[in-house]
Computed example of a mutant assay.
Amino acid sequence: MTELVSQYQELPQAFLSKMPYIREVLLLPALANRSEKIIAGLTSLMCEVGQAAPGLVAEGSNEALSLSDALLRCVAFSSEDWEIAESTLQFWCSLAHCILGIDEQTSKRNATQELFLPVFSSLLDALLFRAQIIDIDEHCTGRVSSIPDGLVQFRLNLEELLVDICLLLGAPAYINKLLSSGWGLASQSIPWKEVEVRMYALSMVADTILQDGSPFDFSVVMHFVNILSSRTPAELNGCQFLVYKSFGDVIGSYSKWLSSSKSNIKPLLLFCASGISKSISSNSCSVALRKLCEDASSFIHEPPILDILFWISEGMGEGNLRIEDEEEIISAITHALCSILDKELRKTSLAR
């Protein structure tokens, strides 16, 4: 398609002019009838045209917006695999890069970005929906994660697009969209699959958000951390430790901001201790533990906090941890001990 467009410049415009027909007459009935082969074929065609001429789509004509709406519906289409949604990712990245490539000081950039904000906001919703672990009990048992390979690959391929969406929406709007879902405060009513996928999306764009530097209210994150840190491993089935894994990734990514409040440290350490106990989440939580100890050096050596760290170290032999996870825990405790200024306290702590 790209070669055809290079030879026939009018082809994308001709295709776009037919988008209302393609959407109404071909795509919508196929979606209603769940005709996956037709949906996949139309998705591929629309994406190839869009990728070949992203600038034309970015002009925001009615036909271009019809194309965007059609592809949003394809992303959100529920299927046993993720091939249809995944086939659209490069188109969305191309469109986002085209918009972000416009000089941000110009009125054209502002107008284009404002026009496509609802599109990319809806795209984020659709991606989060498709990236969910649909059935917690079905996909995880015991200590081993058995998430479908297709979902694992789909999630891996989302990082670039999530960063682009964050840049287009702006870090504050992106964060607000992830954390303001109206979840109930009672732990029994929390839809953990929705929480988990949002934590995943938050960790994927950590570098972008940290670089932006906008204020970040971690109260929602800490609310869930407090709930999770109060649970014992016996209360959890295998897949719920994927929630710990995603929260562990968030804690590790934003450890400097989280550890700036002394009141956060105890529940964060207790959370890490719970997550370390299962292989699914042990690495992300042990890394988070080490980063917290590094970033909270001004008070990580206080006796109540050291007691938690010693308690974690005492349980290392019971969990069959991987060597790299043990090294992270040892590094965390070593950093905490090295931050003790009082020689006698340091000597006593080392003896423990």
Rank of each mutant, 00 (worst) to 15 (best):
V5G: 01
Q7T: 01
L11G: 07
P12H: 01
F15D: 00
K18A: 12
M19I: 14
P20H: 03
S35W: 10
I39W: 09
I39A: 13
G41W: 05
G50T: 06
Q51K: 15
A53V: 08
L56A: 12
A58W: 04
S61E: 02
L71C: 06
L71K: 09
L71W: 07
R73L: 15
A76P: 15
T88F: 01
L89C: 11
F91T: 02
C98Y: 05
T112H: 05
S121N: 14
A126V: 03
A126Y: 03
L127P: 01
L127W: 04
D135I: 07
H139E: 15
V144P: 07
S145V: 10
S146Y: 10
D149P: 02
Q153E: 10
L158W: 03
V163C: 14
C166F: 00
L168T: 02
L168Q: 03
L169V: 03
Y174G: 01
N176C: 07
I190F: 04
T208N: 06
L210P: 00
G213F: 00
P215E: 01
F218C: 12
S219Y: 03
V221H: 07
V225P: 02
L228K: 00
L242E: 13
V243F: 08
F247A: 09
K262S: 04
I265F: 08
P267G: 07
K278D: 13
S279M: 09
S284L: 05
S286W: 08
S286L: 14
K291P: 11
S298H: 15
I300Y: 14
F310Q: 01
W311N: 11
W311L: 08
S313M: 12
E314A: 11
M316F: 00
G317C: 02
E318C: 03
L321R: 04
D325H: 07
A332P: 14
T334L: 06
L337A: 04
L341N: 11
A351L: 15
